[in-house]
Every structure is written in C-alpha cells, then in structure tokens.
C-alpha cells in the first residue's frame, strides 16, 4: 500500500532543514574560520575561537548568565505556580485570567521593556511616587543593575511558566484532591503531596521554556542592565556588530548551546529517576 506519510511530512522536513539545520551548520562552519579584516570571515580553518573561550572574562560572564537565568527561572516558578493554581481553580473567570496572562504578547517586547525603563529610572514613576510620598530621600537605584535585569526577564517569560503549569493542573482529577482530604490530608499537605507532584511535568516544561530564553537574552540586559549587567547574549551580539568577530561569536553561541544540552540531558535523567 502506498504510504502518504512521507508526502505529508515533506513540507515540515523541508522547513526544519532550511530554517533550523542550515543556520546551525553555518554557525558551526563560521566558528572554525578566521576573523575577516573588516568583519565577515575568511580561511584558514582554525580552532582559535574555541581556545579563546577559556578566557576568565568570558567564563565569568557565562557563569553570571547561568546565575541570572537560574534566579529568574526560580522566581518564575514561585510566582507562576500559585498564579496557575488560582486560574485552574477559578471557574467562571478562567478564560479572562488566561487572556490577561497572554495579553502582553500583543505588544512588542521592545516597547514593553522601554516601558519598564520609564517606570524604574531615577525620574521614573516609581521613584517619583516614593519621593513625593516622603518614603525615600533620594531616588532608589532601580534601573541598570541585576535587579532590573531579573525583573525584566521574570516579567517577560512568566507566561511561559504559567501556561504549561496551568495545563498540568487542569488535568488533575478533582476527586484526587477529595481523596487526599478524605484520608486526613489538610489543604497544605494535599498541595505538597498531591498537587505539586502531579503538576511536575508542567513545572519542568515551564522551567525549560523560561531558562533557555533567559540564558540567551540580550535585549533585556542591554536596556535594563544598561551595559553594567552583561550576559552571554550581549557578548554574542557584540561579536556580530561592534567587535566584528563573527567566528568568535559563533563559537561562543555553540559553546552555550552545548552546555545547555548537557544540562537538559542531566535534568531529564534526574527527573526520570525521581531525584527532582
């Protein structure tokens, strides 16, 4: 019998090959080339870009990036789980709350990040209100630091945490919660012993969806960090713009990708074996 499978899969295969695999191969090739005199790249082939990764400056930035992304992810879990639980529990307004969670996507991320600058800067809304209320003497340093970067990342990626957790919570059979109460579990025990373990796949999916874009973020640290809070994303971006060192930028992004893949693999292994 003639199978239609290859026919239906062909467009997706073509698209994935073109849009996903091809750029990756280009990045891979570039990372082994030599920096061109006026940008771009040229022969000979060399592994010099990878050797430069060992420079303590870059290692520090890599560590910092993992730290900032990790903190943002943890805060997203702590904020996103209760929010998702609240939405899953509300009956009539559920769609309204879900709509509000997704509403920010309707506006450009760039515009929303600029809006945060107006809120956080020394003459911004927050400092103006606090100053005029007499609660502080001078403006609080809310912008151009790690706090602002984490705030911007949490704000930007919280929906990616809320939606998968909500989906997992929604699938939990309500009779399981009644059964827990019936067997003597107070609400807090039911939360810890039943609700959290059963929504774990959603929490793990949300954490991955938040952590990876946070790690590669360059817009948020650029605007809200003001150049003082540099992350890998900024370094990579810089190699392709001001520094004009494409091979090094390519090597750096490949290295980060490799680390993320190893981490995800370890994470999934641990998750499957129940360590997490």
């Amino acid at each position: 019998m003639l199978s239609l499978r290859p026919l239906f899969l062909a467009p997706a295969r073509l698209l994935m090959g073109l849009l996903f695999l091809a750029p990756l191969i280009i990045v891979f090739v570039y990372s082994f080339l030599t920096r061109g005199a006026y940008g771009g790249q040229s022969l000979p082939l060399t592994a010099e870009s990878f050797a430069r990764l060992a420079d303590p400056i870059y290692l520090r930035i890599v560590f910092r990036s993992f730290w900032i992304a990790g903190v943002s992810t943890v805060i997203c879990v702590l904020l996103g789980f209760p929010l998702a639980l609240f939405i899953a529990r509300s009956r009539r307004r559920r769609n309204l709350w879900l709509g509000l969670v997704m509403l920010p996507f309707w506006t450009s991320f760039l515009v929303r990040t600029y809006a945060w600058m107006f809120l956080l800067r020394d003459t911004g809304l927050l400092n103006t209100i606090l100053l005029s209320a007499g609660l502080i003497r001078g403006p609080l340093p809310l912008l151009y630091n790690d706090f602002a970067v984490v705030l911007g990342l949490v704000y930007g990626y919280l929906p990616f945490m809320v939606l998968p957790v909500y989906a997992a919570l929604e699938r939990i059979d309500p009779s399981l919660l009644e059964a827990a109460a019936d067997l003597g579990a107070a609400p807090m025990t039911t939360l810890v012993r039943v609700i959290v373990p059963l929504s774990r796949p959603g929490i793990v999916a949300g954490a991955v969806l938040v952590f990876i874009p946070c790690l590669g973020a360059y817009l948020t640290p650029d605007l809200l960090g003001g150049g003082k809070s540099i992350l890998i994303g900024n370094v990579v971006q810089n190699q392709f713009t001001n520094a004009r060192d494409w091979p090094f930028g390519a090597a750096l992004s490949l290295a980060v990708m490799a680390v993320v893949m190893v981490l995800l693999w370890a994470f999934r292994r641990g998750d499957r074996e129940g360590f997490l």
Binding site: L176, E178, A179, A181, D182, P197, L198
Partner: peptide, 20 residues
C-alpha cells in the same frame, strides 16, 4: 467539620488512587 477531620472514608466511584 472538614473531611480531613472526620473519621469517615470514601471509596470513590473511579477509586481516585494517587497515580504517582
């Protein structure tokens, strides 16, 4: 009195066993 303070237990129609 909430269910967790009553010495009454239920066998649910779908059994409601904890799958994890």
């Amino acid at each position: 009195l909430p269910p967790y303070h009553r010495n009454v237990c239920t066998v649910f129609q779908n059994y409601a066993l904890f799958p994890h």
